[in-house]
């Protein structure tokens, strides 16, 4: 009888103790809330936001200052892509210097809407022409804007890539 009553109060004591321990955890955090908050205020910190070097945001075709890229139009990335998000349109054109007919990149079509950022195209590229860009703000109002042409207008193949 007395034991039952003692157990009853012991249970209450233990319950309250357990609850207070839990409240201690949240209480500790609200006391140090200023220091512990790790939320980034994203659109405000845009200027200082630094992505990691290997961050995969989108595929970009690198151009140098003379508007030259390194893509030979070999289509290795197109083959490597699991989702068909890269389309290489190439043509055989006459080289103005040597006069020989040669495969050349016409348009590098990139369907961002299908891309899963798996990085396989970058691994497949024999000339390091493409790489993963850091831009991650891809939202657009029209789906068609997600289909991009990566080579800039008038760009040419950089010299010495094919050797």
């Amino acid at each position: 009888m007395f034991k039952a009553i003692a157990d009853y109060f012991k249970e209450i004591y233990q319950t309250i103790r357990g609850l207070l321990v839990g409240m201690g955890v949240t209480g500790k955090y609200i006391a140090h809330a200023r220091r512990e908050i790790i939320t980034q205020e994203y659109p405000d910190n845009r200027d200082t936001l630094q992505m990691f070097e290997r961050f995969r945001g989108e595929v970009v075709l690198l151009h140098n200052e003379d508007n030259e890229h390194r893509c030979t139009g070999c289509s290795a990335c197109e083959v490597a892509c699991p989702n068909g998000s890269i389309e290489i349109i190439w043509a055989r054109r006459e080289d103005p210097e040597t006069g020989k007919k040669k495969k050349q990149l016409e348009t590098f079509v990139y369907h961002l809407s299908m891309c899963t950022m798996c990085n396989l195209c970058i691994l497949a590229c024999p000339t390091d022409a493409i790489k993963m860009g850091h831009n991650f703000e891809h939202a657009v109002f029209d789906r068609s804007q997600l289909t991009k042409v990566l080579n800039r207008p008038g760009s040419r193949l950089e010299k010495g890539v094919e050797e």
Partner: peptide, 8 residues
């Protein structure tokens, strides 16, 4: 609630 949960 946000401060309890370490949010802003």
């Amino acid at each position: 609630c946000a401060f309890f949960q370490l949010r802003l």
